[in-house]
Design a protein around this nucleic acid. Structure first.
Lengths: 208, 208
DNA sequence: GTCTATATTTAGATAGAC
DNA sequence: GTCTATCTAAATATAGAC
């Protein structure tokens, strides 16, 4: 109904651009080392204009976090095309391995944000990154539960911890191969998890 | 030979205090959110005076990193009192579990630093945190090798990744229990690693 | 709605008195 | 060696013209 370039549409598009670029730049440079000018430049929007769309820098950070969360939701929804929950989980790990170059350069977007936001002494944006990781944790637990695996919550925790750990280490060592090696191990581990419990007691925590 | 409070001794002591407090405060607040004033106050040294001991803020960051590295060296040396390399590794994991409250509040000191320093676009202090983690990786690999376990380097990588992952997640979720649950799993996993290889193929990567 | 100019604040770093 | 006072730079945020 609105014309091709109505003011509303153009404004919405700018907001969109600012959000996407905020997600990208904050991932690369971190929250504290990124200035509003950096994001504005990347989104091709004048600095002062940013405040028309986002009242504070933190609102941009939150928008970036939502963006990463949305990407994750999109990915998990796509994985649900598989019938087998084990294949879904393996697809998740394969996606991580594919992202190995980015992970080695900048780490996991959400994990990095969690570290940075955790350092704040004021409560600002406290737990926001944790909430996104919590959603991933829940999704993984649902898959393990669907598999009939015992202790699905603990299995999910192990999986997501492994991802955060390999991302951090790949980034710290600047070595994408860390993602490949640990990713392969996770795939084999997923194969070993049985409906009646994993093949060895060592891999899954005791059901309580 | 020098008197109880010689200028030299007092100066050395101040430098010491600045280093320890830098390590503590940077762990709590992160590099970017910590001002020199914060560290100076914690060490009970006037702000301007800091520059007599450290020419730049980065020199303080490096000193803090060395401090964390020294703590790690100290720990591994103490663990070597055990004859059995498996017990040494289990002792390491137990130490991680004991630190669960601190980990939940501020994450792993070295891991956090690695994340923050990795966000710098200039090459400043690039790879410094990775080097400390590399030392831990080497030590763990030596223990696995002494056990006669196949693929000791990969096993070490898995162990350190697990630690970084559980620290990050415990911090993100503000939940020390993450450290306890994952720590228990790691202890059981270490028990399952055999001299001829782990009990199942799923836990250790194929020897190449 | 868009953008420029600028106010405000804060932090890293230095000069120089003691 | 120690410390105060201050310079300089940069970044968030705002005021107000268009």
């Amino acid at each position: 109904m609105t014309d091709a370039k109505s003011p509303r549409a153009r404004a919405a598009e700018k907001r969109r651009r600012l959000t996407t670029e905020a997600a990208r730049v904050l991932h690369r440079q971190g929250v504290e080392r990124t200035t509003l000018a950096d994001i504005a430049r990347a989104a091709d929007v004048p600095v002062g204009n940013v405040y028309y769309y986002f009242k504070t820098k933190d609102e941009l950070v939150l928008a970036a976090l939502s963006e990463h969360g949305a990407y994750l939701d999109e990915l998990t929804v796509r994985l649900e095309l598989s019938e087998d929950p084990r294949d879904r989980l393996k697809g998740l790990v394969e996606a991580w391995i594919e992202q190995r170059e980015v992970a080695a350069r900048h780490g996991c977007p959400t994990g990095s944000l969690a570290v940075e936001l955790g350092k704040r002494s004021d409560g600002t944006l406290d737990g926001e990154a944790g909430a996104v990781l919590g959603r991933l944790l829940d999704w993984a637990a649902r898959q393990f539960r669907a598999m009939g695996a015992p202790g699905p919550d603990d299995l999910a925790l192990t999986l997501v911890c492994a991802y955060q750990g390999m991302s951090l280490m790949a980034n710290a060592l600047r070595d994408p191969d860390v993602m490949a090696r640990e990713g392969r191990r996770l795939l084999e581990w997923l194969d070993s998890v049985q409906a009646t419990g994993p093949t060895t007691k060592s891999l899954s925590p005791r059901p309580r």
